[in-house]
Design a protein around this nucleic acid. Structure first.
Length: 238
DNA sequence: ACATTAATTATGT
DNA sequence: ACATAATTAATGT
């Protein structure tokens, strides 16, 4: 068995991979071409690190397929998930916030396809590609905003409201419509949810069981479907 | 109002 | 069969 990402001989990358993604959507075909020619494509198994907190930020990444958790390691060594990133977004963009080491660890939540470029290209990307800078700063802005509201929630809200809101965010960003509701599109355990909301897996388990009896959610192991988002919104307000 | 501990059951390889 | 996930009850702060 082997637990590290498989290094694959590159399939030629099609330009359509990037053309519809916000940071690149304003670019000409030949610009996309040169960007792709400088990119490295790589597939990761679920649950492996793309990069690690504190390490030199020598590359930045575009998640083409899959989901990754942005995870921070606490002093006692346990992981705390800061946020989830869906396909189509940049990650590891330490350079955008003026850092030369990664501020957090990125773990794949599912099998994932990732493009990456050496960080030294960041400045030329920003300078030469129209819309790249504005779009990426938009996403970092969105992410800090989200972490901000999470902090406020942790300080002010009770557990039930926190996990309700965490669930709502998850289905908004990584939700997939299925019959009977919206399912979180990657495997997520009660323990994961408890990390997101700073509680215990037991409390999360009880809450989910309760909500399931009331028909708000549906869950099997590692799978959670929200059937009644509005009811969760109500719960989330306290 | 919540965590912790522990015992029990379910589920996926 | 085995490990991991989830539930449930009891007890603690």
């Amino acid at each position: 068995m082997n637990d590290h990402p498989t290094r694959k001989t590159l399939p030629r990358l099609d330009e359509s991979l990037l053309t519809h993604l916000p940071p690149f959507s304003r670019l000409e075909k030949r610009q996309i071409r040169t960007i792709l020619d400088q990119a490295t494509s790589r597939r990761y198994e679920a649950g492996v690190a793309v990069f690690r907190e504190g390490h030199p930020a020598d590359r930045f990444y575009m998640l083409l397929d899959g989901y990754v958790r942005v995870v921070r390691i606490t002093a006692t060594g346990e992981q705390v998930t800061a946020l989830h990133i869906p396909a189509g977004q940049l990650l590891g963009i330490a350079r955008a916030i003026g850092r030369d080491t990664y501020p957090a660890t990125a773990m794949t939540a599912t099998e994932s396809i990732v493009l990456s470029w050496p960080t030294r290209l960041w400045d030329t990307f920003v300078a030469e590609y129209d819309g790249f800078a504005t779009e990426t700063y938009k996403t970092v802005g969105h992410r800090v905003g989200e972490m901000n509201t999470r902090i406020v929630e942790l300080a002010t809200q009770q557990v039930e409201q926190r996990v309700a809101n965490a669930l709502l965010r998850l289905i908004n960003q990584t939700g997939r419509k299925v019959e009977g509701g919206i399912e979180i599109d990657f495997p997520i355990t009660r323990h994961d949810l408890s990390e997101l909301t700073a509680t215990t897996l037991h409390t999360v388990s009880r809450l989910l069981s309760g909500w399931e009896k009331r028909g708000l959610v549906l869950s099997k192991r590692k799978r959670i479907t929200v059937c009644d988002p509005h009811a969760l919104v109500v719960l989330g307000q306290g």
